[in-house]
Write a protein that binds this DNA or RNA. Structure first.
Lengths: 343, 343
DNA sequence: GCTGGCACTCCCGGCCCTCGAGTGCTCGCC
DNA sequence: GGCGAGCACTCGAGGGCCGGGAGTGCCAGC
């Protein structure tokens, strides 16, 4: 473990580097911080810290730069930060405002987060599977295409196109719709997706067997469609990419990072993987993605109605203002969860 | 007007610059193109072209670089290009594939376009206002919140939350829903939005006056919500930003461009403005946006069921492969329109 | 009017040098 | 024994210098 002086000096180097983006020398540390020792002593300590892998020297006669291990220590011993007054106000007024639909709100939240932190922001919406179904409706679009619209308790709406070669008519569609509604409303989408045809009461009206079998087929197709893409429905919202770009200097790096962010599924997995490891910050390669070696990811889950619902995160350079990012993410996750629980 | 030789040389300079990204000298032009004149002559011509504003010299003793006017000439005299065989195949198989919902398909289309061109792609979906309503439904979410779900003929689904202080119950919601459905189904969303309360038949069931007035109020609120954001509902999809980034070398420029692309409304206006001016290519400042001075925008409208529906576009550096971009955009716009007309 | 020739310009790249920030080490001091 | 002043050393950044070369403009001749 690091003794107090080592820790203080490491802290000083890291925070200085985060500010200046330039290798930090012993002089800087000795004069401009609360470390009351001479530069020579600082040098000794820094040499030790380098030997232990916390710092790195780009070349002899340069200052020191934190390694991932250095950032990790810095982050781990960071106290619970507080957001500035104006930022707190910004968050408060954001969530006081009305934001039409849930998707709009989540998208706006990325803007809020990236405004607060000046980094890119990611918001993963609550999964649809756990929400309960409020309404199921079948609507005929064309001769052979039916749209199934599902309204969920959290205000999300899912739709699925169903193509079929059945002879569609209003009676058939209404019958199937009624059956689906009866079986699904009040249950979670996951439960509905787990249903099989026999689960759904066939107590239909006085229709012919042929008609009944058509209804069965349409109901079956609809269930298939509902099962189809549950993973995909986790909505991901990404914003503020322009902010983080300026933190890097190589266009190539930027391009790589953007390529990552364009793959939404990958981003969700990234967040969940980090959370799954019990982390709230992933530094550099800790993200598990080579292309993000120069990035750090600050994440937080949010809770809706007492259950973990989704996650938000901020992606910036490894030399990010961790305290600000951590508090911003924490506060926004908290508020977002509360706001979504209101309903 | 430019005589044939001037035009040929200008063409040569522009296409050479597009390839190499470096100032083009007279030697290059004289040797590596079909211009069969001496470098000296080329120099004379180039000096003239510079005087006329088609070319620009970064400094004495450097080659020439096209100005916006130069690009403009180049683009205007470009013949109708053809897509390569493999690209054509790519487009064909893309549109043969099934893409769940319309939004998914439009989002995928940005990927197709940016794969084809290696630039950023924008797809503006068909406006909801012109589609006809297939279904209107009111669903109660919470004590005071109702969700209005509208299914449109093109498979799009709109939803609007309605907050009210009415005492909501199923009867009220059903009554209002039925009234709305009766009035809206079969009409375009624009027509519906133009309706006022009296337009909607009040031939309700045998309910009390008080109940009827509640229904009226709920219908009115719903109409307000439907009117609310018609502009905003034009869906914009943007993809492939990582591609275009590598075409620039200054991180600052990249950041500015991304900032633009993050403002979806601005992007729609950009496309529509360019199309409105009857252009299919906007070069540099022609885009009307100072931050895009180093970019060009290639756009094309697409037609669904015989009517202009939306637009697609590609954003790249001014030194873009205009022929490829133009053909890609044209082909994709055409196919997209056809695909969306199928229904 | 095109072109070969020629003098000129000026950027780019390499080289060298200096400067200075920063280091490691040693040694004296408390 | 730990701290700090002193000192020699390292090495990159930055500036100046130079040569090469790509490119130009212009002129004279065919």
């Amino acid at each position: 473990m690091l003794d107090e002086r080592k820790a203080t000096i490491l802290r000083a180097v890291v925070s200085e580097y985060i500010e200046s983006a330039q290798p930090v020398g012993s002089n800087h540390v000795a004069t401009s911080t609360e470390v009351n020792v001479s530069p020579a002593t600082v040098r000794n300590v820094m040499a030790a810290l380098e030997a232990e892998g916390y710092l790195h020297q780009p070349h002899t006669s340069a200052g020191r730069v934190p390694t991932e291990k250095g950032y990790r220590f810095f982050v781990d011993q960071l106290g619970p930060g507080r957001l500035g007054a104006s930022e707190t106000q910004q968050v408060r007024s954001f969530f006081a405002r009305t934001h039409g639909e849930i998707e709009q709100m989540l998208a706006d939240t990325t803007r809020l987060l990236s405004n607060l932190t000046r980094y890119a922001a990611v918001v993963v919406g609550p999964p649809h599977e756990v929400a309960t179904v409020r309404s199921v409706q079948l609507v005929q679009l064309t001769q052979r295409v039916v749209l199934c619209v599902v309204v969920l308790s959290n205000g999300a709406v899912e739709k699925h196109t169903i193509e079929t070669d059945l002879d569609l008519d209003d009676l058939l569609i209404n019958a199937a719709g009624t059956r689906l509604a009866g079986a699904a409303i009040g249950r979670s989408l996951a439960e509905v997706a787990a249903m099989t045809l026999p689960d759904i009461s066939t107590a239909g009206g006085p229709r012919s067997d042929a008609a009944r079998s058509d209804v069965d087929r349409l109901v079956g197709l609809t269930l298939d469609a509902l099962r189809g893409d549950h993973r995909h429905e986790d909505q991901v919202f990404i914003g503020g990419t322009s902010e983080m770009v300026s933190a890097f200097d190589a266009v190539g790096t930027v391009s790589e990072i953007l390529r990552i962010l364009e793959q939404q599924l990958l981003v969700v997995n990234l967040l969940e993987d980090v959370l799954g490891r019990g982390l709230s910050v992933a530094i550099g390669r800790e993200t598990g993605n080579e292309a993000l070696a120069d990035c750090s990811l600050v994440v937080a889950p949010y809770v809706v109605d007492g259950e973990a619902a989704g996650a938000i995160g901020v992606l910036g350079p490894t030399r990010m203002h961790y305290d600000q990012a951590l508090s911003a993410v924490a506060v926004v996750a908290n508020r977002l969860g509360r706001r979504l629980s209101e309903g």
